[in-house]
Amino acid sequence: MLAPHLRLPIFLTVLLGVTPVVAEGMDPVFRVHFSNGVISPTVIEVPANTRFKLQLQNDGSTPIEFESVPLRKEKVLGPGASSFLVFRSLEPGDYAFFDDFHLDMPPARLVAK
């Protein structure tokens, strides 16, 4: 758990969309943007066997749902909302995810190396 005096600066960097520098002992953060069915980036390389955070941002005008069957994760975000998912550890591999509210669009992938 972060000390109280460290929480506010980290919250502000996430809120303002600034990519924070990952200090020793902190989890790496990877950003995913959703906009009316479009996911960006479509491929995200993450460290295998390492805890990390996936920051989700809905930049579109419609709700989105991050959904991944192999990762067993889902999260709904309204227009303009942001949230995050924490992954404790992923085995090396390729994990598909998609926007369950925009099934006509292609899925994206997390690649753990």
Rank of each mutant, 00 (worst) to 15 (best):
Q57F: 15
L15H: 04
F98A: 11
D27M: 07
V29Y: 03
E24R: 11
L90A: 09
E67L: 12
G80L: 12
K53L: 14
V32T: 06
T42F: 06
L90F: 11
V46K: 06
K75E: 10
L54H: 09
N49P: 02
V38S: 03
M26V: 09
V21W: 08
G78I: 08
D99M: 13
G37T: 09
V14S: 06
V32N: 03
F97L: 02
V21H: 04
P28I: 13
V18R: 07
D59M: 15
A48L: 09
L71I: 07
V38L: 04
A81M: 07
L56I: 08
V32L: 15
P79L: 13
L85T: 01
G37P: 02
T50K: 01
V76Q: 04
I64G: 07
F87P: 10
P20V: 09
N49Q: 11
P63L: 04
K75D: 04
P28K: 04
Q57H: 15
H33C: 08
N58L: 14
V18H: 05
K53H: 03
F66W: 13
V29S: 01
F98M: 13
F98T: 14
I39V: 15
F98V: 12
F97Q: 00
N58V: 14
L90W: 10
S82Q: 07
P92S: 02
G37Q: 02
F34N: 02
L16P: 06
G17M: 10
G37F: 06
P47G: 01
R51F: 06
K53T: 15
L77V: 11
Q57S: 12
P79D: 03
E65P: 00
S40D: 01
E24I: 12
T19F: 11
R51Y: 06
E91Y: 07
F30C: 12
P28Q: 04
E91F: 07
A81R: 09
R31S: 13
S83V: 01
D99R: 12
L71Y: 07
V69H: 10
A23R: 08
M26I: 06
S40F: 10
F84Y: 05
V29K: 00
L15W: 07
V86G: 04
K75Q: 08
N36C: 14
R88T: 13
I44R: 04
L15C: 03
H33Q: 04
V14N: 01
L16Q: 12
S35N: 10
S35A: 08
V46S: 05
V69D: 03
P47W: 05
P70N: 11
E45W: 09
G80F: 06
D59Q: 15
Y95M: 05
N36A: 15
V32C: 11
S89P: 01
D94L: 13
M26E: 13
D59P: 07
V18D: 00
T19E: 15
G37A: 08
I44T: 15
K73W: 05
G25L: 10
P20I: 05
P20C: 04
D99W: 06
G17Q: 02
K73A: 14
T42S: 01
R88K: 13
G78Y: 09
I44N: 02
S35Q: 08
G93H: 12
D27V: 09
V32Y: 11
F84S: 00
E45L: 11
K53S: 07
K75Y: 08
L56C: 06
